[in-house]
């Protein structure tokens, strides 16, 4: 299904690019997860698609099959793209190298911040812990077993920042309500926890969620792109009374409509918004190397609607979450620690 639409889409794009070769072109290079990963590659690509719709530009993507492809894919887009967006922390080195070799080409990378910054690269990073904090608070308020679970793909900052916020949010709930909700799968102090070691095995997603469920968790936050789809199918089989899933990156009730009912909410990481902002800047000639940080305040991160659980979440809890959101934005509540 996705394969067909993808090919059709690519073909359609191609026809467009032939008819108006001189139009502004935004390009995206995916990491090994692929363009249809129901996660960050797909969300970032949505930013390009939105730009195509709103600004009438051209867009295209290249998928990487292996790490050795990153540099080559970046090179093969040279000369035909006005801005090249790379997706993923793992592409950090390749993007920096390409940027150094081609100082006139504009680049932007999702999930990577260079220190010091590179003049022709915009890093897009997200204060996902802010949104995940809200999710942790929500989950702690919703759990019946008093046990929450989380696991990640690889132990890298863009993944673990979700887990940090989730744990801190749950702890905050405990200190407010005097409960003892615990979170399995991540220790923010030692930076150790559960990781599948990949971003593509749905079987792992299922197995890890099963383990957490066996340990008593009734709400699980998988932070591993499409791996979480495996966890969702387990929740689908067990029933949402037994296990609920919190989605990541996009609102997964939209990206995974078949199992929309298992998602309590999703921790939004609005890469589409930041990607679109970078493209706009490049079009307007206001592009400047540096960093964009997505926060609750600027809408770069957020919490998705509660979907099937809209009525199940007590109004009281909803109000508390709104208060916390405001407190984080105005700085009166610092997360972490």
């Amino acid at each position: 299904m996705t394969f067909l639409t993808k090919t059709g889409l690519a073909a359609a794009l191609l026809v467009g690019s032939v008819s108006a070769a001189s139009a502004f072109t935004a390009c995206q290079v995916t990491d090994t997860g692929g363009i249809d990963d129901a996660g960050f590659n797909q969300t970032a690509w949505k930013g390009v698609q939105d730009s195509i719709e709103e600004y009438g530009i051209e867009g295209r993507f290249l998928e990487s099959q292996a790490e050795a492809d990153y540099e080559a894919n970046l090179n093969s887009l040279l000369g035909s793209c006005d801005v090249i967006v790379t997706v993923g922390f793992l592409m950090g080195d390749a993007t920096a190298a390409a940027a150094a070799a081609n100082p006139d080409q504009k680049y932007s990378i999702v999930d990577f911040a260079y220190d010091p910054t590179i003049p022709n690269v915009v890093g897009q990073v997200y204060a996902t812990d802010q949104a995940a904090f809200l999710a942790g608070y929500l989950a702690a308020g919703m759990t019946e077993t008093g046990v929450l679970g989380t696991f990640g793909g690889i132990n890298i900052p863009p993944v673990t920042i979700f887990m940090d916020g989730f744990v801190h949010g749950a702890n905050h709930y405990n200190s407010v309500h005097g409960t003892e909700v615990s979170v399995l799968g991540w220790n923010p102090e030692s930076k150790e926890g559960l990781f599948t070691g990949n971003f593509d095995s749905l079987d792992d997603g299922r197995a890890f969620a099963q383990n957490l469920y066996d340990e008593g968790a009734d709400i699980v936050l998988p932070v591993a792109g499409p791996v979480g789809l495996g966890s969702a199918s387990l929740a689908n089989e067990l029933g949402t009374d037994e296990l609920k899933i919190i989605g990541v990156d996009a609102d997964q009730t939209q990206t995974d409509p078949d199992r929309a009912h298992v998602y309590l909410t999703s921790v939004l990481k609005r890469m589409d918004a930041t990607v679109q902002a970078v493209i706009k800047a490049a079009m307007d000639d206001t592009f400047e190397g540096g960093l964009i940080v997505g926060t609750l305040e600027n809408g770069g991160v957020g919490l998705a609607p509660f979907g099937a659980f809209e009525d199940a979440v007590p109004a009281e809890l909803k109000a508390e979450i709104e208060e916390i959101r405001a407190a984080i934005i105005d700085g009166s509540l610092t997360i972490g620690g």
Binding site: F3, A10, A11, L14, R60, L62, Q65, L77
Partner: peptide, 19 residues
Amino acid sequence: EAGGRQMQVDAGVSIDLIS
């Protein structure tokens, strides 16, 4: 491998088809 990459760039053919 190199030509397959170019297929993706120039013709927008899916990497799966190229494989």
